[in-house]
Every structure is written in structure tokens, then in C-alpha cells.
Amino acid sequence: MTAFTRLTSKAVPLLLDDVDTDIITPIGRVLQGREAMVKYAFEPLRFDETGAPRADCPLNDPVFQGAEILLAGANFGCGSSRETAAWAVKALGFRAVVATGFGAIFESNCFRNGILPVSLPSDAVRALAETARDGGDLSLDLDARSVDDGRTRLTFPISDFRREGLLRGVDELDLILGRLGDIAAFEAADRALRPWVSPVRPSAAVAPNLSDGR
């Protein structure tokens, strides 16, 4: 996974609360495959009923073209666990999302996809949005846990575990695979401790009928 250390970029101010993962990647588009999913990311916000782009949506504003930071409101990415939402945010070119708060699964999906999610109080996000609208750049420094808009420098909270992981570009699967010895030892001890955990295989289980009885 690519490491994240510093980023200076324009930012798109999308200060809505509760932008859920059904908005970021609507299920109909997910089913149409990756291309449609990315093309129609944030569809209810970016396009009207006729499919025409909404001029008033900051994501469509040419002024913010090329921005790598997304500014958002409270509870961004709440809802469904679909990781497609993080993939789409990344595919739109964003490497960081600064929001008032995140849905838990989306936030954790971000880390696994090299996207830095930053939580700040709503006044702070609003102030950053002002800078962004004035055409200013934001600078994120993960090592220092800071965001700077040229006027103010703020620090943001992030767990050491997540920070280290992003800084070093750790692939979590590699980390776990490196612990297979611990896992096997746990399994052996646990089998003796909690034998009831292994599911009983019912002998009278109904055989799955692959021909679709409907």
C-alpha cells in the first residue's frame, strides 16, 4: 500500500452531514461495475433527475478540478459497509477526507486504501472550507498530525496504530500473515478451552439445491 506522509492540495468543500455510502456509491451503479461506480460516485448530489450534472454541486465545479482533499460534514460515509465507497473516493483523486466525523466502517476502509480520514470540529472544517472556496491550498502533515490552510495550523487526533500504518504504507494482511504463528498457537489453546466453538455439522442438513427451486 502507498504510504501517506504529506499532502498539499486544493480541497472540495462538500459540507453536508450524513453523506452515506449509498450516496457515494448507489447500489444500482455498484452492480454496473467499477467504471459506472466511479463515474456516478455521489450521484444524487452530482446529477439531477434527468442525469444532467448539477452546477451547484462543488464536486462538479471546475474550480476544484484536481483537488486531492475532500472536506465533509458530520458522519461522512455512514451506512452500508460497502468498500466501494472508499474505492470511489480514491478513484475521484482524493487522498484525504477532512470531516466533522465518519461512519466507522468507512473510516477503517479508508486506512486500508491509503486514504487519510481526518476528524475535526465543525467550526474548524468550516474555516478550512472558506480557505478552499477562496482558492487556497490545504496542507496535511500526518507525521505532525496537522492541517494548515495558510492562516491557521490545527492538529487532529488519530490513533498511533492508524498513523503508523499509513506512514509506513503497511499492508494489514501482510502484518497478520506475519503473525500466523501466534494465530496457530491461539487456535490450539482455544480448542481445548472452548471446544464448543466449532459448529456441529447437522447430519440431517438439507442439501443445497443448486438448480434454484423457485
Binding site: 486500508r112 494489514e172 494482511l173 497478520i176 487456535e187
Partner: peptide
């Protein structure tokens, strides 16, 4: 708890997850 697709992969491969 609910997890994303990459974590599903982690569980499939290792039957373990890193959780804060």
C-alpha cells in the same frame, strides 16, 4: 461487527483481524 471487503479478505486468509 460489520467489516469492509478488504477485512473479509483478511478473515478468509487468516481467521483473524486487526481491530482498534
Amino acid at each position: 461487527w460489520g467489516v469492509g471487503n478488504t477485512e473479509v479478505l483478511h478473515v478468509l486468509a487468516t481467521q483473524a483481524l486487526v481491530v482498534p
